[in-house]
């Protein structure tokens, strides 16, 4: 297991290096000049050039790439072109709220999705199934933006149960994570449903029933544990999706997270921040993949890693 982990982690290094090249090329290929954006709309060309020199954007690309790699490796990450603030500090400040939000959203949506999915699968073709799946389809098709404002309108303004936005206390997590998780819950429900329907047809479920087990145990223990195997892969994918989806939710709920930082960095072509954040997302994606694979091993004894 340790060996496996070490091998997997080592294998990430070349991948990250490739990603660094892509990220750098991508960031520099998109049209837009950070000096111009940072200098502002009313700046004269002289102002823009002053900014360019001050930010060392006049250096050759190769030097800029090496600076980027050096900064990434040393975790220094450089400074934001726009604010001059340490990128490390910016990301460190924003990562917490974003991951917390993503985990909360994932938490409820997975539990809820599994529950609805199993219920729908068990009552496949009946009313409970139809209700569950209609809810799921609405969940998938409802834009986060719209749902977020709707929840805010209802819970914050109509009922006054929660603050509209911002992150000052744990209860502030509720509305944004509800919003963010709705799509995932729907996907999980649909996916779990089909996984369970598939698994319930398996021979070992017949065996479980032939043992005389109560249906509750047959479904929630025997079927669900097996249905989880594909579902876990889905959870991994969805986590990446959540981080992406949080951009909208962060905007609506004034959430001080990575999404807002990235959007603003892109808007101002703040290369240092975009690059660092894209690397962070890539690393996170690789780690989640690894985590999913390890989880897989726990759920599916046929794939235990040595």
């Amino acid at each position: 297991m340790h060996l496996y982990l070490i091998r997997r982690l080592l294998a990430m290094l070349p991948v990250l290096w490739m990603i660094s090249i892509f990220v750098f090329l991508f960031v520099h290929a998109i049209p837009g000049d950070p000096a111009r954006m940072i200098a502002g709309e009313q700046a004269t060309m002289a102002d823009v050039e002053a900014v360019r020199r001050a930010l060392k954007l006049d250096e050759p690309l190769l030097i800029q790439y090496f600076t980027f790699v050096k900064n990434t490796v040393t975790l220094d990450l450089g400074n934001s072109l726009r604010t001059g603030e340490s990128v490390y500090d910016m990301l460190a400040r924003a990562a917490g709220p974003t991951f917390l939000l993503a985990i909360c959203a994932l938490g409820w949506s997975v539990i809820f999705g599994l529950f609805v999915g199993v219920i729908s699968a068990v009552h496949s073709g009946k009313a409970a199934d139809h209700i569950g799946m209609i809810a799921a389809v609405s969940g998938i098709s409802m834009p986060n933006f719209w749902l977020g404002l709707l929840l805010m309108q209802f819970f914050s303004l109509k009922l006054g149960w929660a603050g509209t936005s911002g992150f000052n206390s744990a209860s502030d997590l509720i509305l944004p994570s509800l919003t963010l998780g709705s799509g995932v819950a729907a996907v999980m429900a649909r996916f779990t449903r089909s996984a369970v329907i598939e698994v319930v047809r398996e021979d070992y479920i017949r065996t479980a029933r032939a043992k005389g087990l109560v249906e509750r145990i047959v479904i929630w223990k025997h079927a669900l544990r097996n249905a989880l195997i594909p579902v876990v892969t889905m959870i991994g994918l969805q986590f990446g999706f959540l981080i992406g989806g949080s951009i909208v939710v962060e905007r609506v709920f004034r959430w001080p997270g990575l999404g807002s930082v990235l959007v603003e960095a892109i808007q101002f072509r703040d290369f240092a921040v975009i690059q660092a954040e894209l690397m962070l997302f890539s690393l996170q994606f690789l780690l989640i993949n690894l985590l999913v694979d390890i989880l897989y091993g726990f759920i599916n004894p046929a794939i235990r890693y040595k």
Partner: peptide, 18 residues
């Protein structure tokens, strides 16, 4: 001073007296 990018949210905050 709070940064609110989403205008609908800022209106909600006004109405909630936030």
């Amino acid at each position: 001073f709070l940064t609110v990018k989403e205008t609908a949210t800022s209106i909600a905050m006004l109405k909630a007296d936030e």
